[in-house]
Write a protein that binds this DNA or RNA. Structure first.
Lengths: 233, 233
DNA sequence: AACCCGAAGTGGTCTGACCAATCTTGCACT
DNA sequence: AGTGCAAGATTGGTCAGACCACTTCGGGTT
């Protein structure tokens, strides 16, 4: 009958409670591992496992020799674990991820067209140039610029939560595959065209055009993935 | 100069590699903690911390006395950590979360209108009745039915990734606050009306109507939250 | 005042032991 | 032979204490 809660689980909950109740705020330092384990009546090993769990969740951060700190608790901190999905996913799940991006990116791009600052637009523009500068190299730089281009757009909506989620859905390895695939099919130009269209819509501050351009782009990637999965998958 | 990677970190990467390379597949059992620690040349404590990290991420699952297993690696497994965001978030971030839901739920509801099976519609209908049966009680049952209603809709899109993300964005405690708030403002009826409208659109298999109904619903919640934050914060 | 260094504090790792839940084996009983 | 249960083996959970590696900070030197 006894509710056998694991000792470590209890420790995790205690620390969570400390944060939720405001006893320790974002950025502040926690008591020593040895202190905490003594207070909560658990061994240091169990305390460390609890801390490890909260570190993995992005709630805590350990600094060797300096102490354990609460993170800023910003969405980006808590959603870092999110990227595991895009990393591990394959086949069908990858299509599902793209379907979600098909819902988010057009809306986000439209929002960006209305909200982006002049500096945002500058950065987005320079990333676009970096992509077009090296059209023959499939190298990491192109992929980085591509990822940065879309991340910069989503970030310029001012919604950090949205940006963190969208980043998590965009994995580097997947993008690299797309670029390689497009090169084969000779569609790199189409990709560049998509990006230019999106950029122009942002400069024109035209949400509708931005939404349409983003939709076209995601659909193109989705169609490619579908063909890739049924073909060479 | 040496790249001092933490021992535990290395253990985490090793196990990740074992899974990525297919040496152990979803649902399969890992070697013993003692075995693993010996093979990787780390102590059992460090090995346990590595396992704890991967357990937190939803990649592994420990069963006392039985062994450590790889999860099914379904999106729902990997996105369980996601709910921490909705739990911990407050104020501004909560608005950001709602803005993301404003992008996802209308699209998801429209998709559900096209894809939901007869059984899905039955379940959604019965959850709607459960909400309307007890309009005077703010009790847990109402909130549960509310959460279940929306989750059932998103789940009936057939996109497990989408469902897992949307679930993560809907926290129980937040919904409870909304229901309480709506009771104060006497807007419980409006909520019920929203839900009925959504349900009818699904039954009519009308994606446009479903999208509109879902948009109205999320906007209503968002407007309430805005007022709540500036008022009784 | 600026710099250097060492002691104290703190997280990181290791060892070995014991507890608790589960699984396996094999004997006794029907 | 088949069934059921009990004892042992297996495996994760917890604990204790020790030592290492890094950071911090203050006293001493230049």
């Amino acid at each position: 009958m006894g509710e056998h809660t694991s000792v470590t689980r209890r420790a995790v909950d205690e620390v969570k409670a400390m944060i939720a109740s405001g006893r320790v705020g974002p950025g502040e330092r926690l008591p020593t591992e040895r202190d905490l384990s003594a207070r909560l009546g658990v061994s240091r090993s169990s305390m460390r496992e609890a801390i490890r769990a909260l570190t993995t969740l992005g709630v805590l951060e350990s600094r060797h020799g300096a102490g354990v700190y609460v993170t800023a608790l910003r969405p980006a901190d808590l959603l870092e674990t999110f990227s595991v999905l895009a990393e591990v996913s394959q086949g069908e799940t990858l299509l599902e991820v793209l379907q979600v991006r098909r819902m988010l990116e057009p809306a986000a791009t439209a929002l960006a067209a209305a909200r982006a600052s002049a500096e945002d637009l500058d950065r987005i523009g320079s990333l676009l140039e970096r992509m077009e500068d090296a059209p023959d190299t499939v190298c990491a730089d192109t992929v980085t610029a591509d990822l940065g281009f879309h991340q910069a757009i989503v970030a310029s909506t001012g919604n950090a939560t949205l940006a963190a989620i969208n980043d998590g859905l965009s994995s580097r390895t997947f993008n690299a595959r797309v670029w390689a695939g497009h090169r084969e099919a000779g569609l790199t130009a189409k990709l560049a065209e998509d990006h230019r269209r999106i950029h122009e819509a942002l400069l024109a501050r035209d949400p509708d055009a931005a939404r349409a351009a983003a939709t076209v782009h995601v659909l193109r990637v989705e169609r490619w993935l579908r063909a890739d999965l049924s073909g060479g998958g």
